[in-house]
Amino acid sequence: MASLALIPLLGIMSLVLVSTYFPVFKAMDNIVYESMEEMMPLVRLENALHRSVMPPNDYLIHQNPEERENWKRLIASVDNQLQAAMEKMKFEEERSALQEIEQSWQQRRSEGWAIINNPEGLSALQLGEAMEQFDANMYQLIDQIEVQHEEMHQFIHHEYLRTKGSRRGHCLSQC
């Protein structure tokens, strides 16, 4: 008989546990998704951009035709990483930021080809200045990705604090 009296208490405890821990698990899932599924493609994109800076520089200095092929290969790598990152972004703000990065990348590609091909017949001094501008623009592009990384880190930190607060009995909607 006493065990029957405990059934409603067990039901209430189960309901409290489910209503408390499911939001915690959902918040933890958001943290894992954001860090692994969205940030890793940005890391790969940033690495591809870093590698793509050098072929126009090296071609300008050494006039080695292999650098032209290397540039083509690295362009394809950056394009692939951009596409992969775009597919993983779940928030419109993230996709919009990546679209801006993609537009900037298209301009950098044109600048790099202009240095390698020199269609305007620029002097060595002018090509050197174009190269300096290209480098500056590429690192500005890489900085745009760093900004997106920072925003994601802030989101993850916020989700972590929400989850931590809910474990201590605070409501998730108030965190």
Results as ranks from 00 to 15, higher is better:
1 M>Q: 11
1 M>I: 03
2 A>E: 08
2 A>K: 13
5 A>H: 07
6 L>Y: 09
6 L>A: 12
7 I>G: 05
7 I>R: 05
9 L>T: 12
10 L>G: 08
10 L>H: 06
12 I>L: 14
14 S>K: 03
15 L>S: 14
17 L>T: 12
18 V>K: 04
19 S>V: 07
19 S>E: 08
19 S>H: 13
21 Y>A: 10
22 F>Y: 15
24 V>A: 12
25 F>A: 14
27 A>E: 08
31 I>H: 04
32 V>F: 05
34 E>S: 10
34 E>R: 13
35 S>T: 12
36 M>S: 05
36 M>R: 11
37 E>N: 09
38 E>F: 06
43 V>R: 06
44 R>P: 00
45 L>F: 00
48 A>D: 05
50 H>F: 09
50 H>G: 03
50 H>T: 04
52 S>G: 04
52 S>E: 08
54 M>P: 03
55 P>A: 09
56 P>I: 00
57 N>D: 07
58 D>A: 05
58 D>W: 15
60 L>N: 08
60 L>S: 07
61 I>L: 15
61 I>V: 15
61 I>N: 06
61 I>W: 09
62 H>M: 11
65 P>L: 01
65 P>G: 03
66 E>K: 13
67 E>S: 10
67 E>V: 01
67 E>Y: 14
69 E>Y: 13
69 E>Q: 12
70 N>C: 05
70 N>H: 07
71 W>S: 01
72 K>Q: 15
73 R>T: 12
74 L>C: 09
75 I>T: 14
75 I>Q: 11
76 A>D: 09
76 A>F: 09
77 S>E: 15
78 V>P: 04
78 V>G: 11
79 D>K: 10
80 N>E: 12
81 Q>D: 14
82 L>M: 15
82 L>D: 01
85 A>L: 01
85 A>D: 03
86 M>K: 12
86 M>N: 06
91 F>H: 14
91 F>P: 02
93 E>W: 07
94 E>N: 15
97 A>L: 06
98 L>K: 07
99 Q>S: 13
100 E>M: 10
100 E>P: 04
103 Q>G: 13
104 S>A: 15
105 W>C: 01
106 Q>H: 08
107 Q>W: 06
113 W>Q: 05
115 I>W: 00
116 I>R: 02
118 N>T: 04
118 N>I: 03
118 N>S: 08
122 L>T: 01
122 L>G: 10
123 S>G: 06
125 L>M: 09
126 Q>Y: 08
126 Q>R: 13
126 Q>T: 03
126 Q>D: 06
127 L>M: 12
127 L>R: 13
129 E>G: 04
129 E>D: 11
131 M>C: 11
131 M>N: 14
131 M>Y: 02
134 F>Q: 01
134 F>K: 01
134 F>M: 03
137 N>D: 10
137 N>I: 00
138 M>F: 10
139 Y>C: 02
139 Y>R: 15
145 I>W: 09
145 I>K: 03
145 I>R: 07
145 I>D: 06
149 H>W: 00
149 H>M: 02
151 E>M: 11
152 M>Y: 05
155 F>E: 07
156 I>H: 04
156 I>L: 01
158 H>M: 01
158 H>K: 09
159 E>D: 10
159 E>I: 00
160 Y>C: 03
162 R>H: 06
164 K>H: 14
164 K>A: 10
166 S>I: 02
166 S>R: 11
166 S>W: 02
167 R>A: 06
167 R>N: 09
167 R>Q: 09
167 R>W: 14
169 G>Y: 04
170 H>I: 04
173 S>L: 04
175 C>F: 03
